[in-house]
């Protein structure tokens, strides 16, 4: 493509976003003239979604939720690392300030991040992030090594990654303290499949997981409380 053509193409794809946005805003107002006024008043989402950045899984669209219903964090391979202030701030705000009732960690089959992590290659800047997925493999090495089919192994790693990240959410002080006091939030682990567009519940036993992590990771008592 010539430079002029590229410029024209970029201008068009850029304009499209604004045209689409105007169309969407008009549609909402036709359906409910108060829609935007209501949103302006504030948000009270019931859910926090921690999902993958992958463009094919827009959380609200695949769950049928509208604007105002779900607080969202999306990163590469839906990871929840203890040293990551980014996800830590999201969990903190969602649990302590918005009082969400459910936290969903959602991975997906065919995840590029999980695949990249299983590729024996130097990925530069991505190494430290993807390393967390390799650690999930190591935690479940015995199970994963018994799976001979490569696709099945990859799918199972996607699921195990979700389960480990959900456990990491449960390990957070915000979740442990809120649950001790309010009996919420409940943490769920799901996987999205492109074959049928459906979510699979990985059936995390929240209370059981909470009990099991608290042997080592109990943070229910705030050290600074009252000081």
């Amino acid at each position: 493509m010539a430079t002029d053509e590229i410029s024209k193409y970029l201008q068009q794809s850029h304009d499209r976003i604004f045209e689409n946005n105007r169309k969407w805003a008009e549609e909402q107002k036709t359906k409910n003239p108060e829609f935007f006024e209501q949103l302006k008043a504030g948000q009270a989402p019931e859910y926090l979604w921690i999902g993958c950045s992958d463009s094919r899984i827009p959380a609200e669209a695949i769950t049928g939720l509208g604007a105002g219903e779900m607080f969202i964090h999306r990163n590469i391979a839906n990871l929840v690392c203890s040293t990551d202030l980014n996800v830590g701030s999201v969990i903190n705000y969602a649990v302590r300030h918005l009082h969400v009732k459910h936290i969903v960690v959602c991975g997906h089959y065919g995840c590029g991040g999980v695949k990249a992590a299983m590729t024996p290659k130097d990925m530069g800047l991505l190494n430290p992030w993807l390393r967390n997925i390799r650690d999930v493999y190591r935690l479940h090495e015995t199970e994963l090594d018994t799976i001979t089919c490569e696709d099945e192994k990859y799918n199972r790693l996607v699921e195990l990654n979700v389960i480990e990240q959900a456990r990491n959410v449960i390990k957070s002080a915000a979740v442990q303290q809120s649950y001790a006091k309010n009996k919420y939030p409940i943490v769920h682990g799901w996987a999205f499949g492109f074959k049928d567009g459906l979510l699979k519940d990985l059936e995390i036993d929240f209370e059981g997981q909470l009990k099991s992590i608290q042997k080592i990771y109990n943070l229910t008592t705030d050290m600074l409380e009252g000081s």
């Binding site: 976003i17 689409n20 946005n21 169309k23 969407w24 805003a25 949103l39 948000q43 989402p45 827009p58 959380a59 609200e60 669209a61 939720l65 509208g66 604007a67 105002g68 219903e69 779900m70 607080f71 969202i72 964090h73 999201v90 705000y93 969602a94």
Partner: peptide
Amino acid sequence: ADSRVPETTVCN
């Protein structure tokens, strides 16, 4: 992360 700004929805 605000629930009122679902990117794919607001950009149609």
